[in-house]
Design a binder for these strands. Sequence first.
DNA 1: CTGGGCCAAAGTGTTGACACATTGCGGGCT
DNA 2: AGCCCGCAATGTGTCAACACTTTGGCCCAG
Lengths: 231, 231
Amino acid sequence: MDRTATAAPANDGPLAETIFRSLLKQIYDGRLAAGALLNEAALAEEYQVSRGPVREAIRRLQGFQLVTREPYLRARVVQLTPEFVRQLYEVRMALEGMACNLAAQRMSDAELRKIGDELEEYRTRAASSKSGARVKEKVFDFHERIVRGCGNERIVDMLCGDMYHMLRIYRKRSGAAPERKGQPSQEHWQILRALQARDGMLAESLMRAHIGKASELLLNTHAGGDTLASH
Amino acid sequence: MDRTATAAPANDGPLAETIFRSLLKQIYDGRLAAGALLNEAALAEEYQVSRGPVREAIRRLQGFQLVTREPYLRARVVQLTPEFVRQLYEVRMALEGMACNLAAQRMSDAELRKIGDELEEYRTRAASSKSGARVKEKVFDFHERIVRGCGNERIVDMLCGDMYHMLRIYRKRSGAAPERKGQPSQEHWQILRALQARDGMLAESLMRAHIGKASELLLNTHAGGDTLASH
DNA sequence: CTGGGCCAAAGTGTTGACACATTGCGGGCT
DNA sequence: AGCCCGCAATGTGTCAACACTTTGGCCCAG
């Protein structure tokens, strides 16, 4: 039953998959800076594989719009300009707002109650402990729970796929925007109440406003306006 | 200067690109039915190329979510079930609604006036001639004009890329839903007026309702509920 | 000194062969 | 007779070499 006894770093299935994940992670943590060039041959040598899997991984990144490329030119990691991030947030507001609206119609009372319990648990835990890192983690969980409850696989894929990935990259690069303390949590409660009241439009509006605030905060804090890559 | 003297069908650049477009077109017009299996070797022989480009084309289709595939299994053309299409329309309502909202803030008066002129021109032309085909073309133009005016490249790509593609496929397969005569045009006028009044929320609501009606009509007309492919 | 074109260097596109995973079928065991 | 195991058959994953395109630099003409 033991599938793979090797302790190699994440050798699950196709090499292209492994390389794809590796490149993705490298883009996340900045080892692959924005604007960096991806050389197929060099990467192939680095990973000790042929160019085929590398090529496929790069094409997948292109599909996720994380790298730009045209026919015979080299691929380069996309530049996450503030303008680009603003557009990303607009898409997120649209999709996650709709997800919220749908969730108000489709999530069960039990599911909603469970989310409420977890929010409560988080609040008490945050009051006693002072770990700021946990907060962010919990925030993401709240959003993801609602998105996954919307009953629309397409929306789930888009938001939990590339979208969150890219936003996370930007957030990390921009040096963890200053938290707005308990306010997000308060807004989460409002959203949850709207969901429990089955008021889809209200829930959508609240979610949009919630995301909009996060967006403004993120974009304004380092409104210097440079591309985050030109250093 | 004559790049390629061959009269072959659309040999522009990379083979993978050519094959990708060919497969896309074949999925459109139904030569590749939903649920059909894509065999890399067979396609390679058919196109007289190696498996590399074929493989790449299939992966791109996978990126567009037009084929489903997992690591070692064969790729198959996606099944456009009514449920799937419903979800697609929900995404479209979210994104195109947001696009409409943004367009209300960002499109110039001149652009909006031009769209109004074209709508007017279409109305008079439709009143005299009875070509129903022109109508649909014009409808799409209206939607696309607004989307492209929203100032958000991400939204434009998503909607005018795979989204419209898939919906067009479904519409074609389902046998051109019965037109609801002049009503769409009337709703277009309402949307345009909201845009000119710079009322983003209203424009968004109208656009959502407009798309929602089209969705219901499409899904109800052949509510038989089968997958469109199981014949 | 400047501009244009040739040429090598770098990198992507494509190929055919080989290795591995999955599947369906047939034979042997219970 | 029914079930499980193993084995070919099918098809995907990977590789290393070759062909084509682009790019940057060098040389030469003006």
